[in-house]
Design a protein around this nucleic acid. Structure first.
Lengths: 225, 225, 225, 225
DNA sequence: CATGAATGAGTGTTCATTCAT
DNA sequence: TATGAATGAACACTCATTCAT
């Protein structure tokens, strides 16, 4: 069911930043089912209307349950958004961590990582836009995003350090700093391509980012120029 | 003179993505003064409270005028935000376009550009955070941001193409694509450093980005590694 | 950036029923001119937008004068409406009181009176609608309308009485009561035809009303059936 | 319950001339009860204060419910007025269509019809004044009124035609036109007597209108003069 | 007399949240 | 657990009216 008119004014109540005590999950099968319906509905509505324009009643309608029942499972819009976030993360991580086929070719490794990231971003573009919006609105989620970005950069930093130590990457940059900047480059490019709508051919996007990434670390390969 | 529009329907309306016909500026000295007070106050309040939490009455209080007077100059929060944006742009562009002192050294040019960008971002971090928030909320401002980003990338693209043609940059990347990605890298890094609060030493930030940028284009310099 | 149309709401002030002390007219030529411009503009705007939707600023804009100047001449919307009413009455009465050409034929007299009334109504339909609206809103004008109707009925009553005394009208009705009812019939028919938009051929309207009027008084004429 | 203070100004929203899709009625007993309370309260307040001066909060106070609950049942003042109108119509039509006792006497039939109409009007004078006001303000209700008037005239037209065909009414007028005009006469007289406050004895009103009506159709009766 | 910026009282409307059933 | 009617705080917005220039 689509809403007839979107409200224009975005009033927002500063969330009473409770230290997010995650509420215990329901135990009865019926309760589990209802909660799941709510989370699914919330994702649908959030992605369609944005966090601000989504009303709780839209979510309960979409879920096919009554308005009051919402509070049996969640205390606020923020809380159900966190639940959506958790469920999306499972989905984003689980099935697509296919073994990167590359052997030892470092550029191929970078390419595979970039492609995996970009594919995942593209697949979940609606949610990524939403996450961005919520992060710009809610400090709690912004911090979450920051921590996640740091963890990601940490992983990439190890990879870069490894290439440097093996003499494959000759650039004398701090591996953590470089990882942070390059990861940001890829993230921003994904944002530009899949959310802002800049025109990019997907393969060209992968190649450009991979080449810039490899070059910036001065990885010597015959074909990398 | 006929009344412009006959209201035909009620309820709140989705904001029109109209060709934003900016309302004519006031002509009398008093009007000019009041409008300026409003724009200043709006920037203060927006930066302090965020776009969403800012109430018009906060703005008019800050400006020291009555609530109703707001509508003499603006029709909505979005409209006064646009005015703030315009005034910030003047401020951001005008006084800081210092002649880049670098001579011919391409790396030095890149460094100077990055430094100028980052300094401006840091100086206006509160506003940049605000702009980001508004862009994630209001499609119109998102488009504005996109167009601006493209213009910026366009400029950088010409610079890259020049370096490629002169044989200074050896990377065989599409100059527009590379410019877009690298500009995004710098922008995202600024966001991480000045808004998200990632810990960066300013000079290290400039150096890291400059080096990655130069390397990625395979600009040969003795010290660029 | 501009919001779509806002619902227009109007204020209506319960008129502080001052016994309409008519303010003295301006004396300077300039003042006389300005006042006249205002009255003209008010009629235009009132007829176009209705009394309620007409804003004082619409009237002053239409007149090409500033908002504040309104109060040099009038104290309220009601007061300027009264001025419009007065000016319309002059116009309605003056030029069209053509000598009724009929000789002694009573039916012809009735027909001429009805035709004159209906023509005047048709010519001023927009204003009549307005007057009706204002009467339904403002008790003071409703009373005005009542008094005027009674005066009109009084005149017709004398005419009916005359016909009865001369034996031309045989109906034994109270002349004042009959005049009131029959005048009402003509007024209501004019309303239906020229305001509500019932389809009537003008001549047929005149004839129908005249015949019903004459018959109802049992005026014997050869052709009146 | 009386309002403590007369507000000085009110808001009015230009109504949507929409195909008035009536919102579905509540299903639960509680909902039905609350809606009925609102409609009753609205009638009370509208008749007391007029449509324009009635504030939604006056209605909800009168109904003894909270301001927000209004919107569970209606979207606007116009919409609840339509509901009041519907409920009044039921009341006006249902219980008072007493079998007209007259036998064959055509004048007696006309008298009975007029009396029924006038009694109903007098009984609901407050509401009729209100309906008139709303019609002069809201085009949608004006159209409604027009359609209703035409239906009424249609019925009377058949009656007149019947009298003409039977040779009882000798006037050679178009039955529909005559019905329209004569119905208007009665309606206007009711307005004058019960709303404007013209002094009429009720029986005299019935008799005058009946006699004029009968005469105008040239219905021959011994006592009709 | 004219100007037009400034004022501020006043109400409709939304929607998260509660609670009786 | 589920329901959905009821609540009420909160804010934007209008425009008649004033008044300093």
């Amino acid at each position: 069911m689509t809403r007839a008119e979107k409200p224009t004014s975005r009033h927002r109540r500063t969330p009473v930043v409770s230290p997010s005590a995650p509420r215990e999950l329901p135990t009865t099968p019926r309760g589990i089912r209802t909660r799941a319906k709510l989370v699914d509905a919330a994702r649908t509505v959030f992605e369609r209307d944005g966090f601000l324009d989504a009303r709780l009643i839209d979510i309960t309608n979409e879920a096919g349950i009554s308005a009051g029942s919402f509070y049996t499972y969640f205390d606020s819009k923020e809380e159900i958004f966190a639940a959506v976030l958790a469920s999306v993360e499972e989905e984003m991580l689980h099935p697509h961590v296919r073994a990167l086929t590359a052997g030892d070719d470092p550029v191929e490794l970078i390419r595979a990582a970039n492609r995996a990231y970009l594919e995942s971003y593209r697949r979940n573009a609606a949610f990524m836009r939403l996450l961005l919006q919520v992060s710009s609105i809610d400090e709690e989620f912004a911090q979450l995003r920051r921590r996640r970005g740091e963890a990601f950069a940490q992983r990439n930093a190890r990879s870069i350090q490894d290439l440097q130590e093996r003499g494959v990457a000759k650039a004398k940059v701090d591996p953590y700093r470089a990882a942070s900047a390059l990861s940001g480059m890829v993230g921003r490019a994904a944002y530009a391509a899949f959310i802002i709508g800049e025109e990019w051919d997907f393969e060209e996007l992968v190649e450009t980012l991979t080449q810039l990434w490899a070059n910036s670390l001065l990885i010597s390969t015959d074909d990398a120029t």
